[in-house]
């Protein structure tokens, strides 16, 4: 069953997402995202969450990608970017906590600023673990909380103000990935220990 409160929150955020993230943030992060998404290989790829499709410009060409999002408004705004991609992107309106795919369906899973936004991060990561093949790889571009003073407390303050209308800034995403049953193979800090890429693998057994 869809989480209507989360859907409503992100439907509202869709109108301003391109303005807030489209220039500074996207240009700043594009080289890192292009490098991470360069790990896409032919096969079944899941991308969560598509948003307005800003990340599509960092995808390598020629892939077949199932791209999910909980918000119909986001997917509507993503459509021109989906159509412009030199490959195949299948946008699907799906709650990451309750995906309709069979176990072990995907070869690779990619996320981009997803786990600041989902209400139940460990449950959502367990859902990704379920749909990923044993030995399949998870690649994440995320901003997280910090382990260091004073950044940790600043991110707590930001979260208190942002969580109603947008993302949470203090998530412990690396620990959540491990708690969901993945083996974390690499954490690459891009800005302090806040913006990072995370690579993980689903164990064979």
């Amino acid at each position: 069953m869809a989480d209507l409160a989360t859907r409503d929150k992100w439907n509202k955020a869709a109108a301003t997402l391109d303005l807030m993230s489209g220039r500074g943030e996207m240009e700043r992060w594009l080289p890192f995202k292009s490098r991470l998404f360069g790990n896409m290989e032919p096969g079944k790829i899941l991308f969560a969450s598509l948003g307005t499709g800003l990340d599509i410009s960092a995808f390598p060409p020629g892939m077949t990608i199932t791209a999910i999002d909980i918000s119909p408004e986001m997917l509507k705004r993503a459509q021109p970017r989906v159509e412009g991609y030199p490959g195949e992107i299948r946008p699907e309106l799906t709650d990451i906590h309750d995906m309709p795919y069979p176990d072990g369906h995907f070869d690779q899973v990619f996320t981009s600023c997803t786990f600041c936004s989902v209400p139940e991060p460990v449950a959502a990561l367990k859902a990704l673990n379920r749909v990923l093949k044993p030995g399949g790889r998870l690649y994440m571009f995320e901003h997280t909380g910090s382990r260091y003073f004073p950044f940790k407390y600043m991110l707590d303050l930001m979260t208190a103000m942002s969580r109603k209308i947008g993302p949470e800034m203090h998530r412990t995403t690396v620990a959540n990935v491990k708690a969901a049953g993945f083996e974390v193979t690499e954490v690459d800090n891009l800005f302090l220990d806040i913006v990072k890429t995370i690579k993980a693998v689903k164990p064979q057994n």
Binding site: L19, M20, S21, R23, G24, E27, F191, I194, V195
Partner: peptide, 16 residues
């Protein structure tokens, strides 16, 4: 400012 120059890379230092 983040619209022009990025999100966390602006927010954290500017708040500090």
């Amino acid at each position: 400012l983040g619209i022009l120059f990025g999100a966390m890379e602006i927010m954290v230092p500017v708040m500090l």
